[in-house]
Write a protein that binds this DNA or RNA. Sequence first.
DNA 1: TACAAAATTGGTAGCGCTGCCAAAAAAATC
DNA 2: GATTTTTTTGGCAGCGCTACCAATTTTGTA
Lengths: 354, 354
Amino acid sequence: MDHRAGMPADEEVVAELGSKVTMEFKHQATVTLAEVAEAAGVGESTVSRVLRNHGSFSGKTRDRVMAAVERLGYVPNRIAGTLASTGSRLVAFVIPSLSNIVFPDVLRGASAVLEENRYQAVFSVTDYDPEKEEALAAAMLAWRPAAVMLAGYEHTEGTVKMLRASGCRIVELLDVDGDALDISVGFSNRAAGRDSAAFLLKRGYRRIGYVGHDLNRDTRAGKRFSGFCETLGAHDAPLADHEILAGASSVENGRLGLEQLLARTPGLEAVYFSNDDMALGGYFHCLARGISIPSQLAIFGYNGLDIGRATPQPLSTIRTPRVATGQMAAQLVVANAPPQVVDLGFELIEGATA
Amino acid sequence: MDHRAGMPADEEVVAELGSKVTMEFKHQATVTLAEVAEAAGVGESTVSRVLRNHGSFSGKTRDRVMAAVERLGYVPNRIAGTLASTGSRLVAFVIPSLSNIVFPDVLRGASAVLEENRYQAVFSVTDYDPEKEEALAAAMLAWRPAAVMLAGYEHTEGTVKMLRASGCRIVELLDVDGDALDISVGFSNRAAGRDSAAFLLKRGYRRIGYVGHDLNRDTRAGKRFSGFCETLGAHDAPLADHEILAGASSVENGRLGLEQLLARTPGLEAVYFSNDDMALGGYFHCLARGISIPSQLAIFGYNGLDIGRATPQPLSTIRTPRVATGQMAAQLVVANAPPQVVDLGFELIEGATA
DNA sequence: TACAAAATTGGTAGCGCTGCCAAAAAAATC
DNA sequence: GATTTTTTTGGCAGCGCTACCAATTTTGTA
C-alpha cells in the first residue's frame, strides 16, 4: 500500500543509527511477587491471593500487600501467571484483513467485551490466504489462547486438524453457511445474496448485473453472489452480466467495475455490488456521468456502512451486525459456552438507490 | 501433569451442559518438549536448539527431532519459552479507536512487519480516554511486551511513570509535535493544519470555517485545528466560524456540522474539516443541496482516504502515511533502534473540492 | 475453659521452556 | 596413533507465578 514515505527511508534510518546505539534497552530489573511478599512481610501465596482476589485473607493483610505493591510499583507478570495456572486469558484473532472495515468492527465489538473480562486480544492478518492462515493459526496456538477466532468456514485441512488438536475454543465468524468446528457467530451470506436479489426483483428490475472483487479469496462474498444468482435464476431473470475485479474491494474498483460493465452490457437496470465500498464507487460513477439513480440504474450494496447513509441518496444495502458478531463471539468464549451456531441475521435497508 | 482436568469450574460447566455437550472442552493433554525429546531419543535442550535453529546440532539429529515433532503434532509453548528467556516477542498496541480508520491502518502496517519477524501483536482500545489508556497500558505491561505503542504524546502522569519504569520500548505514534518518551513515529499535525490553511489562502479563500469532532479527546485533531487557525490569523483572515460536534468523527456528523455552520454563518467560502470522514459528509451535504463545489463552497479534509479519490470530485485533503507509520514503528522495535523521532511527513492533495 | 470449626496463612512443587555448563563425540592436527 | 580442537549433546537450575496442602490463628460452641 503506502510504502511511499516509508520503505527506502526506513532502512537508512535504522542503519544510520545502528552505530551510535547504547542500549538502555535491556530489561530493567522488574519487581517480582516474591519481593512484594517480603516487603509486605507475608508469604508469596498470600500476595497472589490478594492480587487475584481469590481465596481468603484478612483486610489488614490486604492493606499491607496493596501498600507494598504500590510502593514497589509491582506489575504482575501474566506470562508467569498463565504458565502456572489453568487456562490463559488470551484470545487470538486470525483475520483476513484490516482494510476491510468488517474486521476492525468485529475486533471492536470483541475487544470491548474481552477487556471487561480481563482477557487480552492478540491478532494477525492473513490477507485472505488460507496457507497464511494456517501458518498464523499455528503461531497463535503457541500462545495457548483460550480461543481462536477465524473468519468463516473455509480453512485448510492442516488448519482444521491443528485447531482441533489444540483443545482451545474455536470461533468461526461472519458466516453460518457451513459446518462449524465449535462455536460460530454470524449470519447467512447466502441468504443475504438471495434477499438482495428478491428485493431487486420485487422492485421490478430484470436486467441485473454484478460487480465484485476477488471471490476465491473472499468466500463469503462468493456465497452472497451464489445466493444472488440462485434467486435471480429461480425468477427467470438470470444474471445479465458480471464484472469481477482482481484486487481487494475498494471504492475505486467499484467505480471501475461499473464503468466496464456498463460499457459491455448496455441496458442494465440494476447492479449488485459485492459490498458497500464497491457500491459507493458505482454510485460515484453514476453521479459523475449523470446517470440518474435509480431510474436509469439501480445500485445495491452489502454491509450497511455509515457512509452509505449519508450520501445524497442513502444506499440500498444490507446491514450486517459486525460489532455484535464480535461481542457475541467474545461473550460465548468468556462464558465457555457449549458449541453452537449463532445466527445474528441482517437487515435489508431499502435506501434510495434501488 | 495436567491438574486442569479436575478444576471445579470445568466440572460445573461440563455438568450443566452435560446433556447436549460432548466436551472438547477440557484442555487437551498437550505435547511438551520433553515428550518430543523422549520420542526423538535426544535431550530436551537439543530439541529446543533444533526448533529455534539456534546453537549447533547435526543434520541427523535435526531430522529425528523434526520427525518426532511432526508425528506428535508438537506446538511449542511460547508462554513457557518467553518466561524462560529474556525479552518477549510481544508488541502491545494501546489505541484510541478501531472505528477511525487511522488505527487499523497503523496496525496493518505494523502487523505485516511484526509477523515477518515472528513478533506477536496484542492490542486494546481506549476510546480516547486517558484514564482508560492508563489502565490498559498497565494490563499490557503485565504481558512484558518488547514494546508498547500508543497514540500521540498526551498521556496521564501515571501512564508515563509506569511506562518509564517498565523498561520496555515505548513508541508514540502519529504525532511529532511534543516530547517523545522514547521512539516516536508520525508527522506533524500542527504543520498539516498550517499547510491546509496556507493552501486555502493561496487559492484565494478568505471567509473560512471549521467543522470538527471532539477535540479534547482527539488531541491530534486539536493540534491541526490550532495550526490551521494560527496560519489564518497570520494572514489576517481569522477563522470565520467553527462547529464542533460532540461525538466521534463520522460522515453523518460532517454533514450535520456543515449544515449548522452554513445556517449560522452565511457567506463562508471554504470549510476545513477535522478529517476526511467529516469532509465527505460536508461534500454530500453540498451535493444534496445543490451547493456548487468549489465555486460556492470549498471543502478541505484530512487523511487522504481512498474514498476521497473516487468521489465525482476528488477531495482536497492531506494524505498521511498511516500504514508507513505502523511499518516504521515496527521496524524500529524489531531492530531495537535507539530513541528517536521519525517524521514521515504528509502530502497535500489538491483535489477538486478546494 | 476446652474443644471443634472456620478463616488465614506459608511452604513448595511444578507449569514448559531456555541458558549455562560440562561431558561426549567427531574432526583436525602433529 | 595420540592429542588438540571443534562440534554436538544432555543435565539441570531457574524464569515468576499458581495450586495444593498443611500449619496456624481466629472464631464459635458446649
